[in-house]
């Protein structure tokens, strides 16, 4: 049983520089970016590497296309999730069936909308800067989400986010390398250290 209270403590105002950093992340929709995702899953011998494109169509409108190693398109509109897998037809489900996922996606949406208030409502937000580089660490306030997700980390340089990392509660993790970084050469097999190093020079 997670001891954190479901929706407390009452969120204080974000520090001005953190709020400014979040605001600078705002992307006018629609926005698309290529990504390379490295997933470290404990039941797998080697990490999974997925490549494709992310789509942001405004508040609550998100899309993720996987091009390799298989074809899959996930679109999220409001609470409606559709997964189209090559040769398997379309499956759809409601985010209401997976509430923790809903919190995660609204966090995502808040980041891309530069909405620091919404972000602060669902996450404990911490920011660190080092020259041009910065890191936002988001920890879920909801205990239901915290059972699955320990932290969501965004690394960036200047006004550009470079990496998006999810640290799951069971130790598994995934990192999305965004934009130009998606084209960077990954070690074979990719390791957590090497991937982190690509994202930022911070000590992890």
């Amino acid at each position: 049983m997670n001891t954190a209270a479901p929706s407390s403590p009452p969120p204080a105002e974000l520090a001005p520089e953190t709020a400014a950093l979040v605001a600078s992340l705002r992307r006018p929709p629609p926005a698309d970016t290529v990504y390379a995702e490295v997933r470290f899953v404990h039941v797998l011998r080697r990490p999974m590497v997925l490549r494709g494109e992310l789509h942001y169509g405004g508040a609550g409108q998100l899309g993720k296309r996987v091009d390799t190693p298989y074809h899959e398109t996930t679109t999220i509109a409001g609470s409606d999730v559709r997964v189209q897998r090559e040769g398997k037809g379309e499956r759809s489900f409601s985010l209401d069936r997976a509430p923790e996922l809903g919190v995660l996606l609204s966090g995502f949406s808040a980041l891309l909308g530069g909405d620091s208030t919404a972000l602060n409502r669902d996450f404990i937000v911490e920011a660190v800067r080092h020259d041009e580089d910065w890191r936002l660490t988001l920890k879920p306030r909801s205990s239901a989400l915290a059972k699955q997700l320990s932290a969501m980390i965004v690394d960036g340089r200047g006004g550009e986010p470079r990496c998006f990392t999810l640290q799951e509660a069971d130790g598994d993790a995934s990192t999305m390398l965004l934009g130009d970084l998606a084209k960077a050469k990954l070690s074979d097999p990719p390791t957590r250290e090497a991937t982190a190093k690509l994202c930022a020079e911070f000590p992890r």
Partner: peptide, 21 residues
């Protein structure tokens, strides 16, 4: 198994992992 790999990269991963083996 191929589908389970894909599931692991999907939103359903959290629910499936405990049952996978």
């Amino acid at each position: 198994l191929q589908q389970r790999m894909e599931d692991l990269a999907s939103p359903a991963a959290g629910m499936l992992k405990p049952w996978l083996a």
